[in-house]
């Protein structure tokens, strides 16, 4: 048995195809993009080594990139502030439900089944200045003066895109918290209730600490996901109006595949990757500190 399980040919047949494909299509390109970022590489085949010039340019002269960085961070904070509280709240309500839990679970998850391009278009309709639901609703309740050209005004465009993205993902994160909360043994909560704890106390002292590990993972998930936000921006505004909703990934897309500046685009992709890693490390440290404090 042991001999069979250690047979080199068998192992190679089973694992090598997967590993080779994986390394050549995922790991190798990752490395390439780091190397490319030090080159001035364009469609004409020009490829000079320029050192850190691409990075310097991004942080000194590229005003759109600097705007995009600010927008990306704003978007990330907004996503965290909207998606996580909503998801935790809905999941908590569902755990306290006697019937209908599955119905709500499925209903909230529906937007995750639809492609971002369909959702983006759907939200363009909802926010349409003339027949859109949002403006129609405002007019119906007599708040017509608050109607906006939501995606056409630079103050509202990015926020609207984030709302649409949150609409798509809240159900997903809710399911994650629901799983975590359902793993909590009901006898603990029952004991707390008998001892006279209010539901808020039970949530704060029992449910919340027990879902904290999942909260950490999910916060990282939301943060890194929103740092990379692209599809929704691309479909809904294309970064406009006048770069008001431009994020790092959309700027990278435009520069790389419309401007054919592959070295420059790679520099942005490297920055994006580093940002994701930095934020993950930072969040892990912040959570660790919070845990230590509680203990």
């Amino acid at each position: 048995m042991e001999k069979l399980r250690g047979n080199k040919t068998t192992i190679a047949i089973f694992i090598l195809p997967a590993v080779c494909c994986y390394l050549s299509v995922a790991a190798f390109p990752l490395l390439c993009s780091a190397v490319l970022s030090f080159f001035n590489w364009d469609v004409a085949g020009l490829n000079d080594f320029v050192g850190l010039k691409n990075y310097m340019q991004l942080f000194t002269t590229d005003k759109i990139f600097q705007k995009a960085v600010v927008h990306t961070f704003a978007a990330t904070l907004l996503c965290l502030a909207i998606q996580i509280p909503c998801a935790v709240f809905l999941a908590y309500l569902l755990t306290r439900l006697k019937r209908g839990r599955n119905f709500f679970k499925v209903a909230f998850f529906v937007p995750n089944m639809i492609s971002t391009s369909a959702i983006g278009i759907l939200w363009i309709f909802i926010l349409h200045p003339e027949f859109g639901l949002v403006n129609a609703l405002l007019r119906a309740v007599g708040l017509g003066q608050f109607a906006h050209v939501w995606l056409g005004e630079s103050d509202t465009a990015l926020v609207c895109v984030i709302l649409a993205a949150s609409w798509q993902y809240i159900g997903y994160h809710m399911i994650i918290y629901l799983c975590a909360m359902q793993n909590i043994s009901s006898s603990i909560l029952e004991a707390a209730r008998i001892d006279g704890a209010t539901s808020w106390q039970a949530f704060r002292k029992i449910t919340f600490p027990l879902i904290a590990p999942i909260l950490k993972i999910d916060t990282v998930l939301v943060a890194t996901g929103s740092l990379r936000i692209f599809d929704m921006v691309f479909v809904m505004t294309g970064g406009g109006p006048n770069h008001a909703s431009e994020v790092i990934a959309s700027h990278m897309y435009t520069r790389s595949f419309k401007g054919m500046q592959f070295g420059y685009g790679s520099a942005m992709s490297v920055i994006l990757m580093l940002l994701c890693i930095a934020v993950t490390v930072f969040l892990n440290m912040a959570f660790k500190r919070a845990e230590d404090k509680v203990e």
């Binding site: 590993v19 994986y22 390109p29 390439c32 993009s33 490319l36 685009g265 990757m273 994701c276």
Partner: peptide, 24 residues
């Protein structure tokens, strides 16, 4: 090690592979 490589792979942002794959 191989399992680790696959797990790390879940974290790779798609944007970091777009340009090299396009050129390839």
């Amino acid at each position: 090690t191989v399992m680790m490589i696959f797990l790390v792979g879940m974290m790779i942002p798609i944007h970091s592979t777009l340009i090299p794959l396009f050129l390839m």
